[in-house]
């Protein structure tokens, strides 16, 4: 039974249909990349998966997990960049979905937050202010927060946008490690060349599914060659 199954999913954003008739399945342990050009519905599809947008048609089903147990790494907002919060406070907020009706964090939640900070190498930053960190450190902190929310599935929305090449490859190595530890990864990205080695499945989205299969098979398609070329250019610039 796949972890996530999408059947004929359609989504609209402000009265325009941006995702139409998308079907695919994510198995446990997969590393799935969703690629496509700007405005082809990638982020909208993620919002649909997360339940932030109502489906216009089709269905999305989860097995072995609930939707609220997704670890989500959103794109950063301008509000966050100068937000006065300590790293620990940010990471701890990832456990919110599990605290039920209790108004305060449990001891387990605090333990989980510390564990995940150590897992991502940001435990030394616990008391630092989020706004004083570098872009790469901020992404690690948000990834630690995402890990607090999930044991199974990470959904990452352009995790390396705006990071320099060295930090980018460090972040990829980290995500690879998490995937090998058993987490399913679903990532939207522009940087195709950076993930080709790691991903075992690839979905090319252009309003609907243009390609769904292994990265190797994708590179044999014309679209794949074009995206791989465009992807490495984007990586350099």
């Amino acid at each position: 039974m796949p972890l996530i199954t999408c059947r004929n999913v359609s989504l609209q954003y402000e009265s325009t249909v941006v995702v139409e008739d998308v079907s695919f399945a994510v198995e446990e342990g997969d590393y799935l990349c969703i690629v496509g050009e700007n405005g082809t519905g990638k982020s909208t599809l993620l919002k649909g998966l997360l339940g932030l947008l109502p489906l216009r048609g089709g269905e999305i089903s989860f097995s072995g997990m609930e939707r609220r147990e997704i670890g989500y790494l959103p794109q950063q907002t301008p509000v966050q960049r100068d937000f006065p919060a300590s790293v620990f406070e940010v990471v701890l907020s990832g456990t919110l979905g599990r605290m039920g009706r209790s108004p305060f964090y449990s001891r387990e939640a605090k333990c989980a937050a510390r564990e995940n900070m150590a897992r991502l190498g940001v435990d030394k930053l616990a008391k630092r202010s989020y706004r004083d960190l570098s872009g790469g450190q901020q992404q690690r902190v948000l990834l630690a927060r995402a890990l607090c929310a999930t044991k199974k599935l990470l959904i990452l929305d352009e995790p390396v946008a705006g990071l320099d090449p060295l930090v980018t490859s460090e972040l990829y190595a980290l995500i690879r490690k998490l995937n090998r530890e058993g987490l399913t990864v679903l990532m939207v990205t522009h940087d195709l060349s950076g993930v080709l080695k790691d991903a075992n499945k690839l979905l090319h989205l252009d309003k609907t599914v243009r390609f769904f299969g292994t990265p190797a098979a994708y590179l044999d398609t014309r679209a794949g060659q074009r995206m791989a070329g465009g992807g490495s250019n984007a990586g350099v610039s």
Binding site: L50, G51, Y72, Q80, L96
Partner: peptide, 15 residues
């Protein structure tokens, strides 16, 4: 705090 810091994440985790 969670809703202030990151509304999208908070909503995605069921807040």
């Amino acid at each position: 705090f969670a809703v202030t810091f990151d509304e999208t994440f908070a909503r995605a985790t069921g807040t």
